[in-house]
Write a protein that binds this DNA or RNA. Structure first.
Length: 423
RNA sequence: GGAGAGAUGGCCGAGAGGCCGAAGGCGCUCCCCUGCUAAGGGAGUAUGUGCCAAAAGCGCAUCGAGGGUUCGAAUCCCUCUCUCUCCGCCA
């Protein structure tokens, strides 16, 4: 959510900013609603003030033993007026809230113009594309003989689920372990274990609700739970309604979790293989920082995700998302795309975003600025470090041999009992 | 699942219809005193929000959440959530 004061004082500039995303903000209906809000709020508070003053007078008169009946007569219809005003105010504020919650974050200045992923800007490339003396297979063909089974996933649950058995399952676990160990031991993150279901308040805090409910799986319960689409949700909500001690900043959490996504809008895309699943494993990096730290923290966090790709010697490129492709809550996002020889394409394996104070405002996540002594909104950031399922795919495809075996990357061998090949 | 107790500011804790945005303590900040240290004295110290360009100022709201009773609710009533204790069940 953006600062409501920004709308009141710099409406035109906000409208211009939103245009960069291709969002047309209807200032007329906003202004009409806002001026009603002002009128009614002032009237409501005046009435409340009057009630408070008169009630106090009644109390004092009673204490002196005076007759309070005349005073009671004076306030007779005040209650009804007040209730009507309060109700009207509540309705208007609700309407304003719906509008405000539907407005995406203001983009960082450095975000390039553009409409779709075709306009994203490649920042850098790393690693050498592997050369094969044969036609490389994709992970589906490679995986089948090794224990990757989509039919079983469909039988047990539905399409877009997979069963991994044997060394492939272990390989994925090893990948997760390598990521966690690296981020904890080398990058200074604190490991977190969190609920994999979250309530509506938490989803609202990180921006998935109310706008993106269709992307979530709901668990029947009263009130409903949602399966987390990313560990970002529970981890970032650690600081919801919290004033963080300045000494503890920045807070850096790393969390492995399964992620559940309905992929409602993705019919027909990436139906083959493990690229786009309803359930996948991810190691997520979350940072809670002060506003002045966030730009640098964003670069660092992205580098932390890159470090995993480097350890695994997987070729990748770093992309700065353009205005049209940057997510709703994000001010600026880097994607890391790993090379998949089976597709002859770079595919997203990590998305690292700086949300600035957008999530923090919804979350009421604050820190106490020692300079002002006042609580101020924190900045939140997160990024995949990395998506484990896609990392598994990337390892399989980049490390494949002509006989269909997979060479285990050096960095993972200690996690796999020293074996060098999966056959 | 059953029985009981509870939820008040950064923390502890008083408060039982009006004098309560809330005593007292701890912590923290500033000042004074003391040659160090320890101790002592004084002042300050919730959050959100409206009017306002902003500050100042003046309001409004908030005592787990939501409803209700009342001229007036931290306080009375109802519903819910969470925490703790005991019993049962359980990885």
């Amino acid at each position: 959510m953006l600062d409501p004061r920004l709308f009141r004082s710099e409406l035109e500039s906000v409208q211009q900013q939103l245009k960069r995303r291709g969002v047309e903000f209807d200032t007329d209906s906003y202004l009409a609603l806002e001026s009603r809000r002002k009128d009614i709020q002032v009237r409501t508070q005046d009435l409340q003030n009057e009630r408070n003053t008169r009630s106090k007078a009644i109390g004092q008169a009673k204490a002196k033993g005076e007759d309070i009946q005349p005073l009671l007569d004076q306030v007779q219809d005040l209650g009804d007026q007040l209730k009507a005003a309060e109700n009207e105010l509540g309705e208007i504020q609700e309407q304003l809230n719906v509008i405000m919650e539907g407005v995406p974050n203001i983009l960082d200045e450095s975000v390039p113009a553009g409409k779709s992923d075709a306009d994203n800007i490649e920042i850098s490339r790393w690693g050498e594309l592997p050369q094969f003396g044969f036609v490389p297979k994709d992970h589906v063909d490679l995986g089948e003989p090794l224990g990757m089974n989509f039919e079983l996933g469909a039988k047990i649950a539905s399409a877009r689920f997979v069963v991994l058995t044997g060394k492939l399952a272990t390989l994925q676990r090893a990948i997760i372990q390598l990521m966690l160990d690296t981020h904890v031991n080398e990058h200074g993150y604190q490991e977190a274990y969190v609920p994999f279901m979250a309530n509506a308040d938490s989803l609202r805090g990180t921006g998935q609700l109310p706008k993106f409910e269709a992307d979530l799986f709901t668990v029947k319960n009263d009130p409903a739970f949602y399966l987390i689409p990313t560990a970002e949700v529970p981890v970032t909500n650690i600081v919801r309604d919290v004033i963080v001690d300045a000494k503890q900043m920045p807070l850096k959490y790393v969390c492995h979790s399964p992620c559940f996504r309905s992929e409602a809008g993705a019919y027909g895309s990436d139906v083959r293989g493990m690229i786009r699943q309803h359930q996948f494993e991810k190691v997520e990096l979350v940072q809670i920082v002060t506003p002045e730290q966030s730009a640098q923290a964003h670069e660092e966090l992205t580098a932390h995700a890159e470090a995993i790709l480097k350890k695994l010697n997987l070729p990748y490129r770093k992309v700065l998302l353009c205005a049209g492709d940057t997510g709703f809550s994000s001010a600026k996002t880097y994607d890391l795309e790993v090379w998949l020889p089976g597709q002859q394409k770079y595919r997203e394996i990590s998305s690292c975003s700086n949300f600035k104070d957008f999530q923090a405002r919804r979350l009421q996540a604050r820190w106490r600025n020692p300079e002002t002594g006042k609580p101020e909104l924190v900045h939140t950031l997160n990024g995949s470090g990395l998506a484990a399922g896609r990392t598994l795919i990337a390892v399989m495809e980049n490390y494949q041999n002509e006989d269909g075996s997979i060479t285990v990357p050096e960095a993972l061998r200690s996690y796999l009992g020293g074996i060098e090949k999966i056959v």
